[in-house]
């Protein structure tokens, strides 16, 4: 019994630095501006006008939609590309495989600050600046996808070979084995990939700022920087209201989906 008390105590203590900033963000978004930098845990008077201000100052609904649809397409696209490549690198033997894997892996090693200028030149020459294409294409096929490929490869490598043998005996080809046998089994790993990818796209900051220039094309992280007063000073409470609106729905979805997500992962793990 006392062990349990200890465990709970430890967990509660560890929780504080994880929870407090979010708590502060949510409550401060409802504080009057003069109270933001005070230490109070709750607003002295609750105000929701900041939330109206968010929508009045920016096409926030449109921006929400931009972020959402980009993240969904990127997530779906990445899952497809990563599953195919991950499977091939893990289960199929073909000449040049290792070299190609290293080539692909390079993407994992490059921070986006490094390649942003050449990439910008590229999309500029395609006439794709101030469109959402760079934010969709690069994550699906470029560097951000590599982590997903890596996770999928680690998953497929641990898959028992017997399953595939049996399917092959039944006359299924490679594509059939992948589609009918391996892919359905990889659901949990795909779930992990989906969460990683969605969050990555949702929080992308540098790229939208460089590529996008009109407010109705903006994505959420970029929109957060737009809530400023006449003198360019940030309107903290409005920014925090917007930040709250970008974080809370995702948090809710995570709470609802986490059982499948984590328990699914557990059956296979990202086992290596």
């Amino acid at each position: 019994m006392s062990r349990k008390v200890w465990l709970y105590g430890l967990l509660c203590l560890l929780c504080v630095p994880f929870v407090f900033p979010t708590w502060w963000m949510v409550t401060s978004s409802m504080k009057p501006i003069s109270e933001i930098f005070s230490e109070s845990l709750l607003p002295s008077e609750w105000t929701f006008s900041t939330y109206e201000t968010v929508f009045r100052m920016q096409p926030f609904g449109q921006q929400y939609w931009n972020s959402l649809y980009i993240a969904v397409i990127v997530t779906a696209g990445t899952m497809a590309v990563a599953a195919l490549a991950g499977y091939a690198f893990a289960r199929i033997r073909f000449p040049g495989q290792n070299v190609l894997f290293v080539v692909v892996l390079t993407g994992l090693l490059i921070p986006s600050e490094v390649t942003i200028v050449p990439l910008f030149q590229m999309f500029q020459s395609f006439g794709m600046t101030n469109t959402h294409w760079p934010l969709i294409i690069v994550p699906i096929f470029g560097a951000p996808c590599v982590l997903a490929i890596f996770i999928m490869r680690q998953f497929f490598i641990a898959l028992p070979p017997e399953l595939e043998e049996a399917a092959r005996m039944d006359g299924l080809g490679r594509a059939g084995i992948f589609y009918r046998i391996a892919l359905p089994l990889s659901r949990p790993a795909l779930g992990a990939v989906a969460i990683f990818t969605f969050l990555h796209s949702w929080n992308l900051y540098l790229e939208p700022i460089v590529y996008l220039s009109t407010p109705d094309m903006f994505t959420l992280p970029q929109a957060l920087t737009q809530f400023v007063d006449i003198y360019g000073g940030p309107m903290w409470n409005v920014q925090l209201a917007a930040a709250t609106m970008t974080a809370v729905p995702i948090l809710v979805v995570f709470v609802l989906a986490q059982r499948q997500f984590i328990e699914g992962l557990a059956h296979t793990g990202v086992k290596g």
């Binding site: 195919l84 490549a85 080539v103 692909v104 390079t106 470029g142 996808c145 992948f178």
Partner: peptide, 13 residues
């Protein structure tokens, strides 16, 4: 199977 990832890596990495 690896073509999309590979071409993407060539072009964007």
């Amino acid at each position: 199977f690896v073509a999309p990832a590979l071409l993407g890596s060539l072009a964007f990495v």
